[in-house]
Simulated assay, not measured.
Amino acid sequence: MNHTPLNVALAMGPGVAPRIFPPHRLAQLVPELLLLNTEPMEEFASPESQAILARTDILITGWNCAAIDADVLQKAPRLRYILHAGGTVKHHVTDACWERGIQVSTAAEVNAIPVAEYTVAMILLANKRVLQVARKLHTDRTTVEPDQVFPDMGNYGKRVGIIGASKIGRHVIRLLAPYDLDVVVSDPYLDNAAAAALGVELVSLDELVASSDVVSLHAPSLPSTENLIDAGLVAELRPGATFINTSRGELVDQDALLDRIQRGDLYAVLDVTTPWVLPPDSKFYTHPNVLLTPHMAGSLGTELGRMAASTIDEALRVARGKPLLHALHPNDLAFTA
């Protein structure tokens, strides 16, 4: 039976669409949906944007999308779905969207995949002491006997502590399952039965920090989690441990972390910091016990195609009358980044 296709529009910051939605991706929407704009709306105030909004049933959003508030919604009477090709929607999906009953979906589930892969790679390298041994080899430029320098090197039997059974935290746990590691988790919203179902042991945050060879942070950035890893917990990290942060810098007392690193008995892998870009004179850049990466754990390069595919699949599900696969509910916002 023939039916009129729903209208879909794009809204995101400058330069985002070519990275996530090249033409061959957008072509997958047709003919089940009518694409109103191949050049995304970067704002919602212009007459051109408002003309598009008036016809939009489904809004596909990306990074740096403008806020969708009550004034915007007034110009979009048909809008029923916001499908975000990224993780958090807190910067553009406002209370007015939830009050209107708009259904929201995100690509957070698939964005968790590369973050988890990055984390697992760093965990395995950290326990193997690869970065430290490589640095010594580059510095000494002579024969290095790795286990003479680091007799505790290796992954067998090491304890890995996961802070936060988030989408990413759970995926890290799944990816670590084949290895001979002792994996523990700390999360105030997880009980022993749920932890057992994940195949890990639930422990207190203090016990996790004090007993783990690698501590990996995967809690969301919320007012309640700011400075979660405070000076006291930093002090409890066991000597020789590696601390990994792919979450957000504001969850950690960075001054305390740097002080501990400068004592020489702690290592850190930091994909996120506060501020987002550290000042040029930050000691994090120069300390040999620190590996800094520029917020690259999440979807980048070819991995953006996975987020695009997930979002387009959601749009096609709507067109076919199916429920969203990755629906986000208002109550979820208290537990998600």
Rank of each mutant, 00 (worst) to 15 (best):
Tyr189Pro: 07
Arg141Cys: 10
Pro31Asp: 14
Gln50Ile: 01
Arg306Tyr: 10
Asp332Glu: 02
Leu198Thr: 00
Val130Gly: 06
Glu43Tyr: 11
Leu29Phe: 00
Arg80Cys: 00
Leu34Lys: 11
Ile261His: 14
Ile58Met: 05
Glu99Gly: 07
Ile162Lys: 04
Leu300Ala: 10
Asn331Met: 00
Gly321Arg: 01
Ile229His: 06
Glu314Pro: 00
Arg174Thr: 12
Glu201Val: 11
Gln262Trp: 01
Asp191Asn: 15
Glu42Gly: 08
Leu181Gln: 08
Ile173Asn: 00
Ala334Trp: 04
Gln132Tyr: 12
Arg78His: 14
Cys97Gly: 01
Ala126Cys: 09
Glu43Gly: 03
Leu6Asn: 11
Asn37Trp: 06
Ile52Met: 01
Leu278Gln: 07
Val234Gly: 13
Val185Met: 01
Ala219Glu: 12
Ala76Pro: 01
Asn227His: 15
Asp187Met: 06
Val277Gly: 09
Leu83His: 14
Leu124Pro: 09
Ser105Gly: 13
His92Pro: 03
Pro151Gln: 10
Asn37Ile: 03
Asp182Glu: 11
Pro40Gly: 08
Ile60Pro: 03
Leu175Arg: 13
Arg141Val: 10
Asp206Ile: 08
Asp57Phe: 08
Ala195Tyr: 04
Pro178Gln: 09
Leu29Lys: 09
Leu181Asp: 12
Thr336Ser: 15
Ala116Arg: 12
His329Lys: 04
Leu324Arg: 07
Gly321Asp: 04
Asn331Phe: 02
Ile20Leu: 15
Thr311Lys: 06
Asp213Val: 13
His287Lys: 12
Ser299Gly: 14
Leu53Thr: 02
Pro239Ala: 09
Val277Ser: 13
Leu325Asp: 05
Pro151Phe: 04
Gly298Cys: 05
Ser186Gln: 05
Ser49Asp: 14
Val72Gly: 08
Leu202Gln: 10
Ser216Asn: 08
Ser49Thr: 06
